[in-house]
Design a protein around this nucleic acid. Structure first.
Lengths: 269, 269
DNA sequence: GACAAGAACACGGA
DNA sequence: CTCCGTGTTCTTGT
């Protein structure tokens, strides 16, 4: 599933490529990913022109003319790919074609959303997203942590608190901050909160600079370069921690699981 | 805090004593225990006559003429006491006087409610109470346990499930049923559910027969006789279990605590 | 555990 | 955590 870094990269590529292009046609092969009937998509989307493309947590926002917005969430295992010639894979879910012949299509492994929002319409799923972590000052980060009682990992994964972090980057973030994922927020010291903020900034920016994860594809179908060497712990059960040599463990963290170094990411009360 | 047995005893005494008496005046010394302005109490309550007094979980319901209801909850450490001559203690919160000179007053240690509900008005706090455990058949008890996932103690203490059981009687109930308070409901066998039902019936009826707890006062200011000999475990840390000789332990059960025999009330999955 | 309100958590569904 | 809705449990305040 693409997280903030992949969405930032893709949005930038889409912004560069699609800005000013006018939708000629739209094809939908999976109506349940939509927020309105297929017929309305067919009626409303064509003739709108792309004004800009911006990341919104794990969502991609295409701002269009007449105050229409196209909001795309790739869910798990989804891809959004540019095309100039029509040559589509078999599991395609939606196609948007522009007037001059190019366009993009979407594939999904399981769930995903393809939402068209008109002027004066609200969009509950994105309206409740928290701030972009890369636009958040350390002071504001400290402020959102205040009075929260839950576990630090589930807090960071909840898109209402901070948008864009998923179960992939959280592993490296918590490892670099040397924090156990189940630590209750009130037990975090000022120094730990500072480390956490720095780790979020560092991991996400580094991943963006490297074009995103090496197992996610960008708008051109190319993989990023953020991989093994940047993520020594994640998905490596029984490997050893490069910092202390301890064997990496896989633990359950709510509905997700996580790889940790039991020495570096030790639990403190 | 008075629980079901004390409320049953007090309600019976109030029913016998106050039925047919007409309110002459009401005095309020703590407005926050009310559900409406003091002025409305003064205007509405006088001239109403008591039709009946009934227990409602931990609440006392005075049914009055013109479909008015007086609902009293003594909270923690509260008392409701009859008087014939005016001779009040210092920490008094409310007084109701009847036409012929007698009346009752309320003292509270911490919280409590003194609510007047008119005809056609609802009362959210008592509307959501579960069934009276002594009016519940074994079949219905089994039915309310179905599909519940939580711990058995917090289920029984939640007044929405069953009304009137508090942290005093629950200790003897769970000891007699030989159940650990933190057992998840789905792990309870049919036999254990049956034991639990029987223990609830036995403990509550025995306590009513003895006039309630020996450290709570009734409408005449007299204590009940349900005490030490009926409660061998509760509030006796390091005492020994009369059944097996094991040392009694005090454990935390959510926000309350409880005394258990670790041998008799053993945890089973 | 008296109760309310809100947060956190668990689960099932799409 | 992809996100939602529902329901339940836990926390905090009065």
């Amino acid at each position: 599933m693409p997280e903030l870094p992949e969405i930032v990269v893709i949005s930038q590529q889409m912004d560069n490529t699609l800005k000013g292009k006018t939708v000629a046609s739209v094809s939908i092969f999976q109506p349940k990913m939509l927020n309105r009937p297929v017929s309305e998509f067919m009626a409303l989307l064509p003739q709108k022109t792309v004004v800009s493309v911006r990341p919104l947590g794990k969502w991609i926002l295409l701002q269009c003319t007449e105050k229409f917005r196209l909001l795309i969430n790739l869910g798990m295992g989804g891809e959004i790919l540019y095309f100039e010639k029509e040559n589509f894979p078999p599991d395609i879910r939606a196609i948007v074609k522009f007037a001059e012949g190019s366009g993009f299509f979407i594939t999904l492994w399981w769930f995903g959303y393809f939402h068209l929002v008109g002027p004066n319409e609200s969009h509950p799923m994105t309206d409740i997203l928290g701030p972009d972590p890369l636009e958040l000052s350390e002071t504001d980060f400290f402020r959102v942590l205040e009075k929260r009682k839950g576990q630090i990992k589930s807090f960071l994964l909840n898109q209402k608190n901070i948008r864009g972090i998923g179960n992939y980057y959280i592993q490296e973030i918590l490892y670099r901050a040397r924090l156990h994922p189940l630590r209750p927020i009130p037990t975090l010291s000022g120094g730990e909160r500072k480390r956490l903020y720095q780790a979020i900034q560092a991991v996400l920016r580094e991943a963006i600079d490297l074009g995103g994860s090496d197992y996610e594809k960008n708008f051109w179908g190319k993989s990023g370069k953020f991989g093994l060497s940047q993520m020594p712990i994640a998905y490596r059960e029984n490997a050893i921690c490069p910092c202390c040599g301890t064997k990496i463990e896989k633990i359950a963290t709510g509905s997700t699981s996580q790889f940790i170094c039991p020495t570096c990411q030790v639990w403190k009360e």
